[in-house]
């Protein structure tokens, strides 16, 4: 959490998008695994937020712990050197799998 708070203080511009989950199972193990696999390819910090709770997209426990289900809206943010590429990749992946 601290890492993200610090980042906010820097007032950097980060990339983000929101998405409403359509998969009836929500973000269960397999899609969470797919997300992590993709997220770790980037150096940017990537977070997924639901109802004010935020998780690191590179950490599977946190992601699954969000309990994202069908109909929930999530916000995905990327912040770092490759944030543009990261956000594009996450968007494509999430659309296809969730």
């Amino acid at each position: 959490m601290n890492k993200f708070d610090r980042r906010k203080e820097r007032y950097t511009i980060m990339k983000e998008f929101t998405y409403t989950v359509t998969d009836p199972l929500g973000v269960h193990a397999r899609p969470a695994g797919i997300l992590v696999k993709e997220a770790v390819k980037f150096t940017s910090d990537i977070t997924i937020e639901k109802d004010g709770k935020s998780a690191d997209a590179k950490r599977i426990f946190g992601l699954m712990g969000l309990g994202v289900k069908q109909g929930h809206t999530i916000t995905v943010r990327a912040d770092g050197a490759d944030e543009d590429a990261a956000i594009a990749a996450m968007q494509a992946l999430i659309k296809e799998n969730m």
């Binding site: 193990a29 397999r30 969470a32 695994g33 992590v36 696999k37 690191d56 590179k58 950490r59 599977i60 426990f61 946190g62």
Partner: peptide, 16 residues
């Protein structure tokens, strides 16, 4: 087999 890939991610999860 995908479950074992998930297990590897859990094993390497920084929170864990």
């Amino acid at each position: 087999a995908a479950i074992f890939e998930i297990h590897r991610m859990m094993l390497k999860d920084a929170d864990f």
